[in-house]
Design a protein around this nucleic acid. Structure first.
Lengths: 114, 114
DNA sequence: TAATCATATCCATAATTCATGAATTATGGA
DNA sequence: TCCATAATTCATGAATTATGGATATGATTA
């Protein structure tokens, strides 16, 4: 992931409706959620959400797929991985002794994630 | 980390000068860098950088410390960990089978980070 | 074909963000 | 105390972004 993509992704996540939508999509995983369901869950107007989903799409953090009349959205795992990698890249390159314990904290295994 | 803090952090990272400054501070680790050195490295005016550093400070991603006339800035590992945890939290809670491989990719061990 | 449902797009307005120059504060040395 | 240096704060205007109403598109059903 390059700097521009990272900026776009961070910018996409720096707005409440979008961050909430993204988290929602992360929790629903492969099932995803239709635009309408997301709008209802977050209590935002349809057109406002649509605009925000389009920002998330462009950031690569979210994918979508038309299913008949409905358009279903999904968190994009690759996009998320790219962003996490970008954040940790310098850390790993420059300061692995700082970085490794930071990563080890992030395992899902035991207890809450972080 | 709560939603507001995460929004603040993402917003802080969604601007080029700030993202570059943050990455710079990550690579310098415990050594940190003075405001002037950062401004010089990034070729931005002192007051512009100062405003941007203050945004990073408030986001918790960066700390600072006065040393005589100089103010030295450092990446805040705890802040970074909090943000990563926030991103992965839902993933771990809701979709550990998606999340774990994503995390495993992030080890510093072999090759580039991501 | 007409009606309807789910989304997206267009447009205007409101709100936010950003870089800049000028002024200010804090520190250390002569 | 005076001066120079390091950095911050403040006010401003330009640019960007968010929002909501209206409308358009695209897919299904009757």
């Amino acid at each position: 992931m390059d700097m521009i993509s990272a900026l776009t992704a961070f910018s996409a996540l720096s707005q409440q409706t979008r961050l909430e939508a993204f988290r929602l999509l992360v929790t629903t995983g492969d099932a995803g959620m239709s635009a309408g369901e997301i709008a209802e869950a977050l209590e935002v107007r349809q057109n406002t959400l649509s605009a925000n989903l389009s920002v998330l799409l462009q950031s690569g953090l979210v994918r979508n797929q038309r299913e008949g009349r409905v358009i279903r959205y999904f968190a994009d795992t690759d996009g998320m991985r790219g962003l996490l990698g970008f954040l940790l890249e310098d850390c790993c390159g420059g300061q692995p002794e700082l970085c490794q314990p930071l990563i080890e904290d992030l395992t899902c295994g035991e207890g809450p994630c972080a």
